[in-house]
Amino acid sequence: MNLSALSLRDLEYVVAVAELRHFGRAAERCAVSQPSLSAQIRKLEEALGLSLFERTSRKVLLTPRGEAIVAQARVVLEEARRLLVLADGSDGALTGRLRLAAIHTLGPYLFPHILPALRNGWPDLTLILSEGRTETLLEELRDGRLDAVLLALPVESDGLVAEPLFFEPFLLAHPAGHRLCAMPTLSLNDLDPAELLLLEEGHCLRDQALAACGLSARGGGVHATGLETLRHMVAAGAGCTLMPLLAATGEDGRLATVGGLVDYRPFDSTSDASRPPGRIVGLVRRVSDPRDRGLRDLAALLRRTLPPGTESVLAQRDE
């Protein structure tokens, strides 16, 4: 096979099918008919002399050799995007499309705060938003499937740059009328570990809550799949939980009390800690991204657009 038989468009088709595991949805993403997409992938497979996918009536799976081909296809497509960025003379500015993702416990609550500023700052930028878990988002960022991610720091930074944005405190969410309501101040030592409700394994907020409370990975007996379920478990009287500030308030700034069944209490700073329990939210991007200047501008804008109740965290590098 020579290079003339290989097109970037075909590689886009292959990567889309690999990510969506569905030919129809991949065709929709690529704005092409499914028969055309399938025919081009078949043609590419014949040219390569191998099968990229296992096709059944119910699912599409990558073959072992297909996994390697798709990984390299992502590299080729990312380098092609770099070429376009360098060629358009934008000097690293944000143009075209930006694939921005956030962890599940942050995205739904942060995006409403930052979207107006993003739309005003880059009106011609096409934003593609998504959510996921930290490990998955970092993998997609390194593979070039995402351009930047918003998550809790620190993270494994090999090949990545993390821009700290702000500190978000945790509040204690407890049933209305709980014994802790009568306490004049609140510290982590006041919590009963047996009452602590957590997210299921795989959520970084679970690990942060356990660490803040000084508990092992087995701490907390009841788990939830997401923050909204966790909030409703508190409303049902099942226990208490640490709730990120942004998740405790709606777009109007009011606390989400589930009909008055949930109360929130802030934690007091202790003598050995400058801040109450919480997390540092940051923007993470690839070192190799040619839009470095634009992504640094994005981080600077996000620092200026602090959600109410959060605290600025200055980056270690100059703006």
Rank of each mutant, 00 (worst) to 15 (best):
M1T: 13
S4R: 15
S4C: 15
D10S: 10
L11I: 02
E19C: 08
E19A: 13
E19M: 07
L20G: 01
L20F: 08
L20P: 07
H22G: 05
A26L: 05
A31L: 11
V32S: 03
Q40F: 02
E45D: 10
E46W: 07
L61D: 04
L62I: 02
L62W: 06
P64N: 04
G66F: 02
G66I: 02
I69W: 09
V70W: 08
V75G: 06
V76G: 04
E78M: 14
E79I: 07
R82L: 10
D88V: 09
D91W: 14
A93L: 12
L94W: 05
R97F: 07
L98W: 09
R99A: 14
L106Q: 11
P108C: 12
F111K: 13
I114D: 02
A117D: 01
S130P: 01
G132H: 05
E139A: 14
R142V: 01
R142D: 13
R142H: 04
V149I: 12
V149K: 08
L151Q: 06
A152P: 05
P154E: 05
E156R: 07
E156P: 12
E156A: 15
L165A: 08
L165C: 04
F166Y: 14
E168W: 04
E168T: 12
L171D: 05
L172Q: 07
C181K: 06
M183I: 01
T185K: 00
D190W: 04
A194Y: 06
L196T: 12
L197T: 00
E200L: 11
E201Q: 14
L210T: 01
L210K: 08
G214R: 13
L215D: 01
H223F: 13
A224Q: 01
A224P: 00
T225W: 10
G226Y: 08
L230E: 05
R231S: 07
M233H: 12
M243T: 06
P244N: 05
L246R: 07
G250Y: 00
G250Q: 00
E251A: 14
R254H: 03
L255I: 12
L255A: 12
L261G: 06
D263I: 12
Y264T: 10
R265W: 09
R279G: 05
I280K: 03
V281T: 11
G282T: 01
V287K: 12
D289E: 08
R296A: 00
L298W: 03
L302G: 00
R303W: 03
R304W: 00
T310I: 02
Q316M: 15
D318K: 12
E319N: 06
